[in-house]
Amino acid sequence: MEDLTLLLGFAGIFAFSAPLIFAVVGETLIERAGIVNLAVNGTILLTAMAGFAVAARTGSLVLGFLVGALIGAAVAWLIAFSSITLKQSQVAIGFVLTLLTRDLAYFLGNPYMGLAGPRLPSWHFPLLKDVPFLGILFFQHDWMTYLSYLVIFLGWWWIFHTRPGLILQGIGERPAAAYARGTDVNRLRYLYSVVGGALIGLAGPIYSLSVKAGWKGTISGLDGLGWIALSITIFGGWNPLRAAFGVYLFGFLQWLGLVLQPRLPGIPSQVLQVAPFPLMILTLLLVNIGNAEWVERTLAALPDRWRHFLKRLLRALRANPPASLGVPFEPE
């Protein structure tokens, strides 16, 4: 019994993480193309509200998800348009949009507060669901959770194992070189913004139609998750596999706080509730510490054996952002 409880708890992490997976992979695609979409938090809130509202009105879950994807794509397109065509700062526009979409979600979502709406039913994967252990862990969820596995793998495969993926890396690293070889950098940046935005836009309805069903306005408990997604994108080193690991780690830490609360009465429960956030920051720090110059200098002073080991470790962890991230490209 105790084992099953534990297993079900672990399984919950995968279902709970599905929306963040979509958001993180979407953001990874956009940033790989060299654009920063800072509006993730607001996008998730607005699409959660809109997806729920549409699904509640029409009774159609598919429409709810579709509307979410469309809004996410539209917000991302706006950022691309402002930065590529209007030559404005992506950071400023993204920041303003995240505030705007957040407030819009609360304002427009008022009539839908606390309504009963449809909810994505669980759908157990035939055959696979009966595999001992793994069945419960991975295959007794709902469709969007299964799609989240696929999104991780597809994102990784696309970026690192296809020709268009290579071009995608190129426009984020050296857009001028890619342009010289005949790539229409800005058109691709638009394209990846819209595709990535649609993925981010799916995260909202996955919350409001599945993971945390319903819309409760400011007390929905979704505000802030978008910022987590942004930081996990960085922690993930712009690699969908690593990012997915970060998302699951975050989910695990949150779940751990919950399970430990009754078992560690000596630790204030607030500490456990907040712990995942500083732990994520620490991880971020650890991952990127290899990029700092002072670390190099400190390492150089160490004895050889230590230095080689640490250097290799840091190199393995290290993630470099796309060189032209956030830098607009103007074809000469």
Binding site: G12, K212, G221
Partner: peptide
């Protein structure tokens, strides 16, 4: 009610 980062998630 739930506040991410402040409370435990009641859903969980």
């Amino acid at each position: 009610f739930n506040i991410p980062g402040v409370t435990d998630d009641p859903t969980k």
